[in-house]
Amino acid sequence: MHPPIPLLERLREFDGSVDDFYASGFELLPSGEDDSGYPQLSDRIRPFAQANGSGSTYAIWLRESLGLHGAEDPNEIVRAAGDELWEPFAAWIGPLIPDVVSSRRSG
């Protein structure tokens, strides 16, 4: 069992105070059932809710245990990744959705 996460505990308190679903397809996993069948990830990623009927899961990434720090400008990281990976992405998506590639060229 993992130590509690304060914000997640507040969500559990709220969840226990309502009688009906408060978000479509969202359902908290019972406390203690936090490995979702992937115990090798449970020291870094903690699943806490079912996202929808497809089997998707919401999880919290325990960044403190990985020594990660928040980015000063996350948008810059996304822009840099887009610039770096545009060519392979365009080669993949172009045949499927040509408008995506043409809109980047014209923009």
Results as ranks from 00 to 15, higher is better:
Tyr38Lys: 11
Pro39His: 09
Leu41Thr: 01
Asp43His: 12
Arg44Ile: 00
Arg44Asn: 00
Ile45Val: 10
Ile45Arg: 04
Ala49Cys: 04
Ala49Ile: 05
Ala49Thr: 05
Gln50Pro: 02
Gln50Arg: 10
Gln50Met: 12
Ala51Leu: 09
Ala51Gln: 11
Ser54Glu: 13
Ser54Ile: 14
Ser54Tyr: 09
Gly55Met: 10
Gly55Leu: 05
Ser56Pro: 05
Ser56Gln: 13
Ser56Arg: 13
Ser56Glu: 13
Thr57Gly: 04
Tyr58Asn: 14
Tyr58Gly: 06
Ala59Val: 10
Ala59Leu: 13
Trp61Met: 07
Trp61Phe: 10
Leu62Glu: 02
Arg63Ile: 15
Arg63Thr: 13
Ser65His: 07
Ser65Gln: 07
Ser65Gly: 07
Ser65Tyr: 09
Leu66Met: 15
Leu66Tyr: 01
Leu66Gly: 05
Leu66Ile: 04
Gly67Tyr: 01
Gly67Lys: 01
Leu68Gln: 15
Gly70Lys: 14
Gly70Met: 08
Ala71Asp: 14
Glu72Asn: 10
Asp73Trp: 01
Asp73Tyr: 01
Asn75Ile: 12
Asn75Ser: 05
Ile77Tyr: 15
Ile77Pro: 08
Val78Arg: 15
Val78Ser: 10
Val78Ala: 14
Arg79Asp: 07
Ala81Ile: 11
Asp83Glu: 13
Asp83Pro: 02
Asp83Leu: 13
Glu84Ser: 15
Trp86His: 05
Trp86Ser: 05
Pro88Glu: 01
Pro88His: 10
Pro88Cys: 08
Pro88Arg: 10
Pro88Thr: 14
Phe89Glu: 03
Phe89Gly: 03
Ala90Trp: 00
